[in-house]
């Protein structure tokens, strides 16, 4: 029989609410604790990276191999993308500039926008896709197939051999790829300008670079090192800390691309703010 006593009803209601509240608190505490554990893991990973970087026995040969993998093997993709960006930017901007009678500003405008923003960000996003996912998938599959453990038991520090070399290669090669993309972008822009006009190669380049100052280059080059670091760290962290199952390889590669791309955009925003503060 159902108890109709109001005191009992209130008591029962309070108990149920109290249980619900404690359950919610437990879930929130667990997720907060997971977040803090992840944060601590990232921090330890970064500390370990710097410790292994400055320890003796830097794996120079593997570092060079990674530079080749990251740099040289990305050249076709970066060349095509850079040239197309320059070409498209020129084709899109030309009619507007003609309307304002400022078509002579075209080479300078394209060069500045490529060097300051388009080149670094688009190349970094491409690298996040190609290099970041490659690192995540490669290290993730090495973890799953016990190759990292095999390295560890053969007295080789996997952090030093696999992670440090990859991150430094990304930090060095990605800025170079960005400069390379800028160059191809300007080349593409010259091609674009010649579709409907007739500009000599020498004139186009001299007009482009007469408008570019050292302070256009410097912030872009500095932020590209940070892009390289972000892509290297995220790719390696996700791969190195992948789970044991085969599905974790895909998860590592995918999350490496997503997180690296997001961080590239955030770093770009911060870099633009800092540059603006310093130059204004």
């Amino acid at each position: 029989m159902k108890n109709t006593n109001p005191v009992f009803k209130v008591k029962s209601f309070a108990t149920k609410q109290s249980i619900k509240l404690s359950e919610k608190t437990m879930v929130k505490t667990a997720s907060a604790s997971n977040f803090l554990t992840d944060l601590a893991d990232v921090f330890l990973f970064i500390v370990q990276f710097f410790r292994e970087t400055f320890s003796r026995n830097f794996e120079f040969r593997e570092f060079l191999r990674q530079c080749f993998q990251i740099g040289y093997k990305s050249l076709p993709l970066i060349s095509i993308t850079g040239a197309i960006i320059g070409l498209v930017l020129t084709i899109q901007s030309r009619p507007v500039l003609i309307k304002f009678g400022a078509v002579t500003m075209l080479p300078g405008m394209v060069a500045i926008s490529l060097i300051r923003e388009m080149g670094p960000v688009i190349t970094a996003l491409l690298c996040a896709g190609k290099i970041g996912s490659g690192m995540g998938a490669e290290l993730g599959s090495m973890k799953v197939t016990e190759q990292i453990d095999a390295m560890e038991v053969s007295s080789t520090n996997p952090m030093r051999f696999l992670v440090v070399t990859r991150i430094w290669a990304a930090i060095i090669m990605i800025p170079l790829l960005i400069l390379y993309a800028d160059a191809f972008g300007i080349l593409g822009s010259w091609a674009g300008a010649n579709i409907k006009g007739d500009v000599s190669f020498f004139l186009f380049f001299s007009q482009a670079f007469s408008n570019v100052k050292f302070m256009d280059f410097l912030p872009a080059v500095i932020k590209s090192f940070f892009f390289g670091a972000v892509i290297g760290f995220v790719g390696c962290y996700k791969g190195y800390n992948a789970g044991r199952g085969t599905e974790s390889v895909g998860v590592a590669a995918n999350s490496a691309v997503v997180l690296a791309s997001l961080l590239v955009i955030i770093v770009d925003m911060v870099a633009v703010q800092i540059t603006d503060m310093l130059t204004s």
Binding site: M142, T145, Q147, A150, E152, V153, S155
Partner: peptide
């Protein structure tokens, strides 16, 4: 770490999957 690495040099470990380096 250093002492463990020295000890590991005397131990061979054959993994279930073989764990050959794919690259």
């Amino acid at each position: 770490r250093k002492e463990l690495d020295e000890l590991r040099q005397k131990i061979g470990f054959l993994f279930q999957s073989g764990a050959l380096y794919d690259s």
